[in-house]
Amino acid sequence: MTTVAGTAAVALYLCCVFTQLTDLTGLRINELLYFRVISPEEISYIFSAAPAKDFGGVFTSSYEEIFLVPADPADGCSDLKDDNNIQGQVILVLRGGCSFVQKAQHVEEAGGKAVLIADNAEDNDSLYLDMVSDGSDAQPTIPALFLLGRDGLMIRRALQRQALPWAVITIPVNVSALGSFPLKQPPWTLW
């Protein structure tokens, strides 16, 4: 039989656990993480991404200028090429071909600091998917984030047009501290 005091104790415990998780990650349940593209200029917007639900790590520090490097192969389902550009950077991979966990594991093994997994539905400009564990023994520890397909497409196109090997980004970005936040969103995405 549940007592009022027992219910209150459980509620207080859950509140403390939630507060500790929020303090560690800076995110609340179902919140998005934001990053800013510094260059190339044509895509210098603030983008949102959804953290993986039950695998991967969290950002323990902010990176003011770090490279966002497209993966080769693009789906990140096998060993990544060009370890020199990947080492210590954020890697952009495409959804599909293997599990989210496998993609994060390949990026981590290549030395990446985090992985952004862009939806392979390139017209997706509003639907975030829940990235969950695949049931394997793999336990990647780097942050893994889901990026809208339209955002991933626009970033890759801008890099291809300018023949750039990477974009320069700031991640994570505290959008509540930015006065002009709404003006810096990608024009193709509604938040």
Rank of each mutant, 00 (worst) to 15 (best):
P165C: 02
F100G: 08
I43R: 00
L92D: 00
D83N: 13
I86G: 04
D123V: 12
V107M: 04
W191I: 10
T170H: 03
S61H: 06
A5N: 15
V10N: 11
T60Q: 08
D83I: 14
K81F: 13
P165H: 10
T3G: 12
T19G: 08
E42S: 04
Y45V: 00
A118W: 00
G57P: 01
P73Y: 08
A52R: 01
L153P: 03
E108C: 06
W191K: 14
D134G: 13
I169E: 08
Y128R: 05
I43M: 01
F59A: 04
D54T: 04
Y34T: 09
W166K: 01
G112V: 04
L190T: 10
L68K: 07
L116C: 06
E108H: 11
T3R: 07
S39H: 09
E122C: 00
V37W: 06
L153F: 05
S39Q: 11
V69I: 06
S176A: 15
F18C: 00
T19N: 02
N30E: 12
T141A: 15
I169W: 02
S99D: 06
Q20F: 12
D151P: 00
T19K: 09
V115T: 01
V17K: 10
I46D: 02
D79I: 03
T189K: 09
F55L: 09
I91F: 08
D151V: 01
P182E: 12
I38F: 03
S99L: 01
G88T: 11
E41L: 05
C98N: 01
N85I: 12
R161F: 14
A9K: 09
A50E: 02
A104H: 05
A52G: 03
A5H: 14
W166I: 00
D72S: 03
S136G: 15
A118C: 08
A177T: 11
F146N: 10
V175S: 02
P143S: 11
M131W: 01
Y13E: 06
K53E: 11
I171G: 08
T141K: 15
F35A: 12
G76H: 06
Q160R: 14
S61T: 14
G179M: 04
R161C: 12
P187N: 13
M131K: 02
V4Q: 15
L153N: 04
P182H: 08
Y13A: 13
V132H: 00
C77P: 07
G26H: 07
G96C: 06
I155V: 13
F100Y: 07
I86L: 15
P165N: 01
L14P: 05
T2S: 02
I46W: 04
N120F: 13
N124D: 10
P182W: 11
Y63Q: 10
N85A: 04
N85F: 05
Q105P: 03
A177D: 03
M131S: 06
P187Q: 13
P70A: 06
L33W: 00
W191L: 13
L164G: 06
S136F: 13
S136M: 12
